[in-house]
């Protein structure tokens, strides 16, 4: 379960942001694995968005008379339920498709929340310095000193199970990671010649911040957010395993895998096999893309 906490972003030149995208696209086309990652991620997002159109059934609709059907190609299965059904007769494929929604919500909003919180707090600390910095850095270090999984599990056990709680939980507990990266970058950028120059000619601080510093944070933040998104999808599965994720009736991948694991050795392996594959594939895709993003936004890798 030890997931990518992306290493602190490598040192970056302060080259202007514009004109980079064309270059990025060219790079992307050259790296087939990254392209695969992008395809997987886009596919995953599309599935999550269009789940209601793609899913053959309502993921919550029970049919106790058609429960525990195996996948269609196995004996006893039917194409009515391509990946089979669970013990309440709910369609597994539909649940996995809708599960992508939960995972996307958790991963996307979790990472976004963490990113925004981290950005706000990190910029404050890095820019204001002094006691604000000391306080924030102290808190950040405190939260980062407790192994992430332990922190998440303990808090999850305390706050109770709901989708919002899980998103908040991931967002807040991951924010320190972003804050640390942002603070470091801000400190570094502030010392850079071009920023010092703009400050010297009397540009207001907020403007310096928004125009010159925040845009330069995009690279490392997007990279980190990408890794954290896949980490959160993964952690959701882990919480599900311990019975601490979203409520059991919500078809999240973590819940599917957790109830499915008992079925692994109880004659219904499909119930955990396919959710497991979905998680692994998505994590793989996002990580591939993240790797590439890191390399691509790191100028020294651009050769």
């Amino acid at each position: 379960m030890e997931q990518a906490i992306a290493p602190t972003a490598p040192i970056r030149q302060s080259s202007p942001v514009s004109g980079r995208s064309a270059h990025l696209l060219r790079l992307l086309r050259r790296d087939r694995l990254a392209l695969l990652g992008l395809v997987i991620l886009v596919g995953f997002v599309l599935i999550a968005i269009f789940a209601p159109l793609l899913a053959p059934h309502d993921p919550l609709a029970q049919n106790l008379r058609a429960s525990r059907l195996p996948p269609a190609w196995q004996e006893g299965g039917s194409w009515e339920h391509p990946l089979g059904t669970d013990r309440l007769g709910r369609d597994l494929l539909s649940r996995i498709l809708y599960g992508a929604r939960v995972s996307l919500l958790v991963g996307f909003f979790g990472a976004t929340l963490a990113c925004l919180l981290g950005l706000a707090v990190g910029v404050l600390a890095g820019y204001l310095g002094g006691w604000v910095d000391a306080l924030i850095s102290g808190l950040v270090n405190l939260l980062l000193s407790i192994p992430y999984l332990v922190l998440v599990i303990v808090v999850a056990a305390l706050v109770g199970r709901s989708l919002v709680n899980v998103i908040l939980l991931f967002g807040i507990t991951t924010a320190p990671l972003f804050a640390r990266v942002v603070r470091g970058e801000v400190l570094r950028l502030r010392a850079m010649a071009f920023v010092e120059a703009t400050v010297a000619i009397g540009t207001p601080p907020l403007r310096v911040l928004l125009r010159h510093i925040v845009p330069n944070l995009t690279g490392p933040l997007v990279t980190l957010a990408t890794f954290e998104m896949s980490a959160m999808i993964f952690y959701e599965a882990g919480l599900g395993f311990l019975g601490l994720s979203v409520p059991p009736n919500v078809p999240s991948w973590g819940n599917l895998l957790s109830t499915g694991r008992e079925s692994l050795m109880a004659g219904m392996p499909w119930l955990s096999l396919y959710p497991g594959l979905a998680i692994a594939l998505t994590a793989l895709g996002i990580n591939l893309l993240g790797d590439w993003l890191r390399d691509a936004t790191d100028p020294r890798m651009r050769r």
Partner: peptide, 10 residues
């Protein structure tokens, strides 16, 4: 990547 994409409990 596989190492990171495989749930340990699984």
């Amino acid at each position: 990547l596989l190492g990171q994409a495989t749930p340990t409990f699984w």
